[in-house]
Amino acid sequence: MKPVKPTRGQLERQLSQSIQAFYREQLGHQPSKVTCQLFDTKIAIILEDSVTPTEQILNKEGQRELAQQVRSSLDEATRPPLKKLIEEVIGTKILDLLCDATVDTGRTGIIAILADTPDTRPSEKLSKVEPGA
């Protein structure tokens, strides 16, 4: 029996959960919210509260530059395993992975450029039945 392809929404949700778990495992800090938007051959990912307490305290105590530097280095270090994880979840190669974070807002933004459009099936929307129809 052929495995059922996920819908775009299911794939986005699965990716969000995997990314949330990835950051918990890698940095010991779980972002409060991860949003994934798949469009054509691209994925836009937004992570809320992605900055660790270490960076937060540095930033709060006037070491903003250092906090931002730590964040850039963490993004650089987590980039290869994150790329691998996204590729595994969506089943498509990534050509480019762009990543940036702001320590002030704790937000991280990631854009993945894919080699192909992920294989998904159309979502089954319930059709509206008019009363009396």
Binding site: L98, D100, T102, R107, G109, I113
Partner: peptide, 13 residues
């Protein structure tokens, strides 16, 4: 939030 890859000559925001 923005980032650039030099090899791919591409910036995303």
């Amino acid at each position: 939030l923005s980032d650039t890859t030099i090899e791919n000559n591409c910036t995303g925001a």
